[in-house]
Design a protein around this nucleic acid. Structure first.
Lengths: 350, 350
DNA sequence: ATTTTTTTGAGGAGCGTACCTCAAAAACGT
DNA sequence: ACGTTTTTGAGGTACGCTCCTCAAAAAAAT
């Protein structure tokens, strides 16, 4: 038995800073809140005291005094896609805790794959009403510039699910999609025993996340699994009906199809086709996102594995990052890292 | 584009309760903090007002006024096991944020598989100094009773990693280990192509988590993978050296070994043996917990998959649950669910 | 050296809650 | 109806911080 105790140090307060810096509380306050009318030398004195004491502002007390409420805007594609629905629900869930978290969220839904909509909404964002924006959208030049304009107004922006690296969004909340594609490929390669062709069902060429998944998938199949051949990918536009209609032709073209990687949304169409047409049980299907539908397909054995990202985690993380950015305080990188979840029928959450 | 805005409602405060209930602030305070000297009828009046208003106590303000600091005690086995080390580091990390989170943590390390040590420590817990206890230990009758005694003192207890369901611990923070074993079996069954024997390397018969994993593993192999046969499991006592010494004999006994499920700790010994002895590349190895060592083994191809649980998530969750229990406030079940993480070399975190 | 401008200090009110004291009111026992 | 006990109310102080005002001091400009 070995004990490890912490020495109890009193938390330094604004009054301590004032005392140590030899200035008044008012001056400390001016410095802390970047109010004007303080000489550079004085600012330095205060800063020195802050550093010496290791002062950390009590955000809870500050927010109480300020009666601060964070208003965050979420921009999501307006589809009946289960994953987007899950995100919406999680955002609503956040709002339910608005009193506890001092955070109010609102959602703006935009026509999918329609950058102009996003641009309009971003340009309409008012810094007096909105303290942060989270965007799930395609990485186009116009979106990129609109994000820049929002940030120029001093409003933090995070990209969700699909990154916007060329804009200078403050953070990206989501998985590494190249890695997700690689993971899918690895599972595919190890689940499929015989040689044959593999199809990648993608969503849109505009969606960065879809492109990245495809890219990762191809790389790993090429590197590690010579028994597989990835055929030209098919764009399903996240549309179940379209996907359903396309499937027969695909199976006709590739009689030696051994696997499908459904890297985007619209799983309903795929599932419908698979259950109706009684394809080989050997066919390995790997899809994305754990939703009621994909979960059932996994349980029934229609799907073999799911690559997923936790919608609750994504939304909570987006909120925490927007709050931290808005307050200019650090955050825990590890906590905000969204994991690439792999679901088999054996490790489904209850 | 479709907008969804929230009506802005003012957060009800204690003063609102007093007004609505037609009593004084002092009385509301007495009721809220369960202070004596209030008639049952008055308590009901206040409670009614609370319900009507949907009042939620502002914990931040309350903790400020109380100058509350949460003191949590973590009881961990004293091993040089990487996973336990990761937990310790995460606990220390929590303490680093003690000013922000108003949470102070301390760690007590106990001799592994030695219930008496845990009992002593639990019995020494003082309610004036400790606001909650998190225990990672074996489920023995004496531990169970000691946990009960701690709870009888009004101190919340959570079990970490390995559950103590027979004690009435407030919560369990960790994965479903039966499910983890099932997951390992599923991967094993699908990764191994030819028929052969599979070995389960376990830790201790006392550890509930190890037992559960074994159980889940056996079930799924029996159900779904007739080409595999699970042989009698070997107890490694989480000891790398012991495991290293045992391996040659095992390989001699089972020339047709196709897979190893290392369900406990002590991976270092296994890795050392595998790299030295150049066993077949076909041999599938699935181990537990992502650590520097197991990570490297996965990258090198020595391990084929890892079943893991996020140590950061576990500690943060334990702290949040202890805090919530101690305050008597609800918590977000989904957020506190620890996932069974599957790592392949393609989805390792950066 | 005087005026003007800038910088600083002192102090107070308030955020939502806790906790304390003292007196007044209500309920109770006889 | 009396005293006694219990219950309630009024008010204050505090937590750590924000934000405001007004006056005093210091620095800069003339």
């Amino acid at each position: 038995m070995e004990e490890q105790k912490l020495e109890v140090v009193n938390k330094p307060t604004v009054n301590d800073i004032a005392r140590v810096a030899g200035v008044s509380l008012a001056t400390v306050d001016r410095v802390l809140n970047r109010r004007p009318g303080v000489r550079a030398v004085t600012i330095q004195k205060v800063q020195k005291a802050i550093d010496e004491l290791g002062y950390i502002r009590d955000t809870a007390a500050a927010n109480l005094a300020r009666r601060r409420v964070y208003n965050f805007l979420f921009v999501l594609p307006d589809t009946d896609n289960e994953f987007v629905e899950a995100l919406s629900n999680q955002i609503a869930e956040q709002s339910r805790n608005q009193f506890i978290e001092r955070t109010r969220t609102s959602i703006q839904k935009v026509t999918p794959f329609e950058p102009q909509d996003i641009v309009e909404i971003l340009d309409a964002v008012d810094g007096r009403e909105v303290d942060g924006v989270a965007v799930f959208g395609p990485e186009t030049p116009s979106v990129r510039d609109a994000v820049k304009r929002v940030r120029d107004k001093g409003i933090p922006v995070v990209a969700m699910v699909s990154d916007l690296p060329s804009s200078d969004r403050d953070h990206f909340v989501g998985i590494d999609n190249v890695s997700a594609g690689r993971t899918a490929a690895h599972l595919m390669g190890r689940f499929v025993h015989q040689r044959g062709k593999v199809l990648v069902l993608t969503g849109s060429r505009l969606a960065r996340d879809h492109l990245e998944r495809r890219q990762g998938f191809d790389l790993v199949v090429a590197e590690d699994f010579p028994h597989l051949e990835v055929v030209a990918s098919v764009e399903g536009r996240d549309d179940p009906e379209l996907i359903y209609k396309m499937m027969p032709e695909i199976f006709d073209s590739y009689p030696d199809l051994v696997g499908i990687y459904s890297s985007a949304a619209g799983n309903a169409g795929l599932i419908q086709f698979l259950t109706e047409s009684k394809v080989s049980e050997e066919l390995v299907i790997i899809a994305h996102e754990l939703t009621p539908l994909s979960r059932e397909a996994l349980c029934m054995g229609t799907f073999d594995a799911l690559i997923s990202q936790d919608s609750g985690h994504i939304i909570r993380s987006a909120v925490r990052l927007l709050r931290a950015t808005s307050d200019g305080v650090p955050f825990n990188r590890a906590q905000e890292r969204i994991r690439i979840d792999i679901y088999l029928k054996e490790n489904l959450p209850p």
